[in-house]
Design a protein around this nucleic acid. Structure first.
Length: 578
RNA sequence: GCGCCUGUAGUGAAGGGGUUAUCACCUGAGGUUUCCAACCUCAUGUCCCGGGUUCAAAUCCCGGCGGGCGCACCA
């Protein structure tokens, strides 16, 4: 990742983090036992925000019907991750230069001294480093720390004792979608394109988790695998996408400059090469708008060849600017057929393909030597199968019979004219099997939530005092509204409780109630956790069934009837009051 | 993993080898109050963990754990 130095306001991060902790949004996990780096809790307020972000994400992708949700285990048997490449990629031995602390893959240092260094264990490879006086490429020193495997996956065992199988906590949810490909293919009536999404936990045993919620050891992922026929890519229409976005394309000419273009133009000008990738970039943009990310703090950056993941053919990151600088929050990769092909190879399954029908069936006719098995069989006995195979594979037919046929076991046999019949066979070929390509948008939910909070957090002043508010989008706010009795007495408290339970009985609507301390303080508390609307019950309410509705973002208040308000809440349209 | 800095109520801070660790805000109970963190009374709650030095450790030392930054690593 290119280094980006942004002036970050560390004090603001501290104040924001303190608020998140104080208000039960995001907290360090296991804190009474000292905490564990890279693990966090979402508290009573944060868990709701997280759930709403994920729900928005699921609805965003499933709305067209071509994408379905699945859910698979986090514990994954080793062969799956061998096929996916994770075991190989993650099990490298690392060593460090004692002098300058540069870290290297030990097998790469030992490359010239052993034919197959990645097969060695750490003692063997340490010996090679010492006995060959291998120098540190950085400082030239020849002293190395003992090498150790840098396995970024959490290992575990399925079952006990001898019967147990090696397994890992999944490092990504994507493999679950590939495992279910056969089921998805049937579900979608064997027609591409289609996709599957999954949200859930992923695990990476990071060497040094940093930056709060940015690099976690257990984190929330949301991934989409969209399967396409590369020869008939889906028709996507993004002509409506006129918003200008910031793009940093991979330069052929070594320029890494931000280009402001609409997705539509970026595709038409060839800046985004794959239309389908472009479509998902624009849909990603839409999602980030929905959950309240600041559009001026988003950019899409194409990976350079060297940083491309081991599977990806083309890759764009969506980066979001926050207090930690530009952070990769979404990766959109064209993984091509890599995963399905690899699983097909390792699992011996033949159901990881799709059928492509030709527009016009192909008629293939060729001249063959059709075997007469009643003669061939008795003559060649055990070898007959090999002979048949060799006959079928024959590229050029002999002009005359008998002839010498080379069989797969290296021997030659004589084929006489009574054993075969020369004839022309024609075959009607309606289509072909192929391995679909897959486009993968992968979202880091925790990173997105951090930026939602970061962008929504506003520090202002009110009558000389500091005043914080969280201007969350209604779609991710921890509650839709809060009901506040001006006072507990004279029946206002009862009226508030009644209204609150009426609102909460509406499907999908969450209302809170708060009656402790002064009204100003309660507004402040609600503002700080981002509740967009406050409904206040006062003396007038008791007389004429009206309440005041207060808008978080400008503290404006409007008086309206309870019945009118209930209708607006139900239709999600409170803002039309203002 | 290395280096530098760091850890005191829920939050933010002060202090510091010796009686009962200080302050503000927050939180809770009661009072007061006719819409934006008001006020009064009372209450709850803290020295990250382990070891060492010492008559005595929250304070000094060592280690661990956590946090921040830099280097390295990072799908």
């Amino acid at each position: 990742m290119s280094k980006v130095h942004i002036m970050t306001d560390e004090k603001r991060i501290e104040r924001l983090s303190a608020m998140l902790k104080r208000r039960g949004i995001v907290l360090p996990a296991f804190e009474i036992y000292g905490g564990v780096s890279g693990l966090i809790d979402y508290g009573p307020v944060g868990a709701t925000i997280k759930r709403k972000v994920i729900r928005n994400w699921i609805e965003h992708w499933t709305i067209n019907g071509d994408i379905v949700e699945i859910d698979s285990p986090t514990i994954t048997p080793e062969p799956v991750l061998i096929a996916s490449g994770h075991v190989g990629e993650f099990n490298d031995l690392m060593t460090q230069c004692v002098k300058c602390s540069s870290a290297y893959r030990a097998d790469q240092l030992a490359e010239d001294y052993h034919p197959n260094p990645d097969m060695l264990d750490s003692d063997e490879i340490d010996n090679i480093l010492i006995s060959n006086n291998i120098e540190c490429p950085n400082c030239g020193e020849k002293e190395w720390t003992p090498s150790r495997p840098m396995n970024l996956m959490f290992g575990t065992k399925i079952g006990a004792m001898k019967a147990s199988r090696q397994a890992y906590m999944r490092p990504e949810t994507a493999q679950g979608m590939f495992m279910l490909y056969p089921s998805l293919y049937r579900h979608f009536r064997q027609k591409l394109p289609f996709g599957a999404i999954q949200t859930g936990k992923g695990y990476r045993n990071e060497i040094s988790p940093r930056q709060g919620m940015i690099r976690l050891r257990e984190f929330n992922m949301a991934e989409l695998e969209y399967f396409i026929d590369p020869k008939n890519p889906p028709l996507v229409d993004i002509s409506m996408k006129k918003d200008n976005v910031s793009l940093i394309p991979d330069p052929k000419g070594n320029e890494r400059e931000v280009v402001k273009l609409s997705f539509h133009d970026a595709i038409n000008q060839g800046l985004i090469k794959d239309r389908t990738v472009g479509y998902f970039l624009s849909r990603t943009w839409d999602f980030l708008m929905n959950v309240g990310i600041d559009p001026s703090k988003i950019r899409f950056r194409q990976h350079e060849g060297t940083e491309m993941a081991h599977y990806a053919e083309d890759c764009w990151d969506c980066e979001i600017l926050g207090e930690h600088g530009w952070i990769e929050c979404v990766g959109i990769a064209n993984r091509t057929c890599h995963d399905l092909l690899s699983h097909e190879k390792y699992s011996n399954s033949n159901s990881l393909r799709a059928w492509r029908e030709f527009d016009v069936p192909k008629i293939e006719s060729k001249e063959v030597l059709a075997p007469n098995t009643s003669i061939l069989g008795p003559v060649f006995r055990g070898k007959a199968g090999l002979v048949l195979e060799a006959l079928e594979q024959l590229k050029e037919l002999p002009n005359t019979l008998p002839f010498q046929l080379l069989v797969n076991d290296g021997t030659e046999v004589e084929i006489t004219s009574d054993m075969v019949e020369r004839k022309i066979v024609s075959k009607n070929i309606a289509g072909e099997w192929f391995t679909p390509h897959v486009i993968e948008p992968a979202f880091g939910i925790d990173r997105i939530i951090w930026h939602i909070l970061d962008h929504a957090y506003e520090e202002t002043e009110k009558e000389g005092e500091k005043y914080n508010l969280l201007k969350l989008s209604e779609s991710v706010a921890p509650a839709d509204l809060i009901v506040l009795p001006l006072f507990e007495k004279d029946g206002m408290g009862d009226a508030a409780r009644k209204l609150n339970s009426t609102i909460n009985s509406m499907k999908g609507i969450t209302s809170l109630i708060d009656s402790s301390k002064s009204i100003g303080r309660r507004y402040a508390r609600a503002d700080e956790i981002g509740i967009p609307w406050a409904v206040t019950i006062d003396h007038t309410t008791l007389e004429d069934e009206t309440v005041t509705v207060r808008r978080r973002d400008d503290q404006k208040q409007i008086r309206t009837g309870i019945k009118v308000l209930l209708n607006l809440i139900n239709s999600g349209n409170i803002s039309s009051l203002f």
